[in-house]
């Protein structure tokens, strides 16, 4: 078991001390190599859950075991280090740096890890290959690429430091159906071929159908968990 959440709650307080309960008593276990999707209406707490799993935020209550170790109360710098080595993020808005070209964007996570200079480039090229990014575009800048291409670059960046887990927050939200499916196919392949644990948040039924398990959130609580019996393979 790679991720284990025990009674996790997240409460936001704004400055007039009105409380928003974003997550309420979440208990969740995810195994190594699983391909999971989290669904739910807007504001149901999906992103908050992903931020906690991704160590970008800490829960107000509860315990989080990552690979069996309690990470609920580690310092910011240690969390940064764990994120750097173990977790790859993919965001809806891609978040590529516009002043860097494709390969430089992919290299970014390795700047915060111990990498030799020459190894970095080779690795970045491999990651781009893994997401089927066309080699002729590797010196392009993000604003010269289509949305689908940008998301491929973002996935390659997430792979750069050989993470255990990939967390994707609505990775297809800005893409048309066809391009979205291609991105999901990429995730499927990475899951099958490398045994990566992948968690994607999505609105769309057809995206979730490609995963192995669907977790349904509403008002900060898990209201259903479904195994997808015959998940549609795109690979």
């Amino acid at each position: 078991m790679i991720i284990k959440l025990e009674n996790i709650s997240k409460i936001y307080k704004n400055n007039s001390s009105i409380e928003t309960v974003a997550l309420r008593n979440i208990n969740l276990e995810i195994n190594k190599g699983e391909f999971v999707s989290i669904m739910g209406p807007s504001g149901s707490g999906k992103s908050t859950l992903m931020h906690i799993i991704g160590l970008l935020d800490s829960p107000t209550e509860g315990r989080y075991l990552l690979e069996g170790n309690d990470v609920s109360s580690l310092s910011e710098d240690i969390l940064a280090e764990i994120r750097n080595r173990k977790i790859g993020f993919v965001f809806q808005a891609f978040y590529l740096l516009s002043r860097k070209n494709v390969i430089e964007n992919v290299i970014l996570p390795s700047l915060y890890a111990d990498y030799s200079h020459s190894l970095r480039r080779q690795k970045a090229l491999k990651c781009l290959e893994a997401v089927a990014f066309p080699e002729k575009f590797i010196h392009y800048y993000p604003n010269q690429l289509s949305g689908g291409m940008m998301q491929r670059v973002a996935i390659a960046r997430a792979l750069m430091n050989d993470p255990e887990i990939i967390l994707a927050d609505e990775p297809t939200g800005n893409l048309d159906t066809k391009t979205g499916e291609a991105v999901i196919a990429t995730f499927q392949r990475l899951n099958k071929e490398r045994g990566l644990t992948i968690i994607i948040i999505t609105h769309e039924e057809y995206i979730a159908e490609h995963t192995e398990r669907i977790i349904l959130l509403r008002d900060g609580q898990i209201i259903a968990e479904n195994k997808v019996l015959n998940s549609r393979s795109l690979v």
């Binding site: 970008l56 910011e76 710098d77 940064a80 750097n84 915060y112």
Partner: peptide, 16 residues
């Protein structure tokens, strides 16, 4: 600010 958020999520420490 988004760049800062991105770098931090990719593993940049405060000091970096």
């Amino acid at each position: 600010i988004k760049e800062i958020g991105l770098r931090k999520s990719l593993g940049a420490k405060r000091k970096d």
